[in-house]
């Protein structure tokens, strides 16, 4: 095995042994890191579920396109072709006769509709865009409004904008929480490593005298910080999954009371790995800061 690989393997082994050597301290540190990462991680998952809920809420992000009353079948077909060219959208055509039939079914409207000399309703299309960002929806609405024989394009943009603003606010809050608790994770690792450097002072002094490079001395501490952070990240993921499991039934019951159904989405494997990697990165950063500062006393 080449010396570089051999030294990394030895440093990783040493870091694992140090984690295992003081199980109680390790557990406390992991809990502190895990809880610090749980709050922003849970916030992220909650926002993700809310976004999904907003998307699935019936009709809230639909665009209604009304043709002019006098539009011919050919003109309607031309508009349909244009809509189909928007490959990301789902389109439903509502012919004017069908619209009138629906109106007649409404008890309050029966008499009014019967008194009408002819069908005043236009042909219409209901468009479900794939991209529901407010700016995209608005751009789409404006484009459709410019098409020939289109009388009116309706988008409940106020609702969409409010919902989007709420999501953006939530995202910002999660980012702020993540920054705050990330700094907490760095601080926890910083302190743990500082205590370790103090405990290993004799070894560091001897190792330096017999030819150890700074990298050799720092390496096990970096591995320790990264491992502790990664394990803390995995613990946070477990806590989030546990919380989602507990919330799944009450949220399902609540959705049923509103006549709908909603299932909470748990983080995917890649997101769990991302959380562990983020923990590892922050742990490494804490170790880097701590070792750099602590080793100055040996110079």
């Amino acid at each position: 095995m080449n010396p570089w690989l051999s030294q990394h393997r030895a440093a990783l082994g040493l870091a694992l042994r140090r984690l295992w050597a003081t199980p109680f301290n390790t557990l406390l540190s992991l809990l502190a890191i895990g809880i610090a990462l749980t709050l922003p991680a849970f916030g992220y998952v909650a926002l993700d579920n809310l976004r999904e809920l907003g998307r699935s809420a019936s009709g809230v992000q639909q665009i209604s396109l009304f043709m002019e009353v006098g539009a011919t079948k050919a003109e309607v077909a031309a508009i349909e072709n244009r809509l189909q060219a928007l490959s990301t959208a789902k389109i439903t055509f509502v012919p004017r006769d069908e619209a009138l039939k629906r109106l007649k079914k409404s008890e309050e409207m029966t008499e009014i509709v019967a008194s009408l000399p002819r069908n005043p309703l236009p042909d219409a299309f209901i468009v479900d865009p794939a991209d529901t960002a407010p700016a995209t929806l608005e751009a789409l609405r404006q484009e459709m409004a410019g098409w020939p024989k289109v009388a009116h394009v309706q988008l409940d943009s106020a609702w969409v904008k409010r919902f989007d603003a709420f999501l953006r606010l939530g995202k910002l809050a999660v980012l702020m929480l993540a920054g705050l608790f990330g700094a907490g994770l760095v601080a926890v690792t910083f302190n743990t490593i500082r205590l370790q450097v103090m405990a290993q002072a004799a070894e560091i002094e001897v190792a330096r005298m017999i030819g150890a490079t700074d990298a050799f001395i720092r390496r096990p501490f970096y591995y320790f910080g990264a491992l502790q952070g990664a394990l803390g990240g995995l613990l946070a993921a477990l806590l989030v999954l546990g919380a989602l499991h507990l919330l799944a039934t009450p949220i399902g019951e609540l959705a049923a009371l509103y006549g709908g159904s909603f299932t909470l989405h748990a983080p995917e494997g890649s997101e769990v790995m991302l959380l562990a990697s983020l923990g590892a990165l922050l742990g490494w950063l804490g170790a880097q800061l701590s070792v750099s500062l602590s080793l100055r006393s040996f110079d």
Binding site: P3, Q7, A202, E203, E205, V206, I210, G211, A212
Partner: peptide, 24 residues
């Protein structure tokens, strides 16, 4: 002497070899 008292005699002697990157 500057020996390390948290490990065996053998581990003390192995330290310079680990620093040099020798396999265990």
């Amino acid at each position: 002497q500057k020996l390390l008292f948290d490990r065996s005699a053998l581990d003390n002697v192995m330290l310079p070899l680990h620093i040099a990157g020798l396999s265990h």
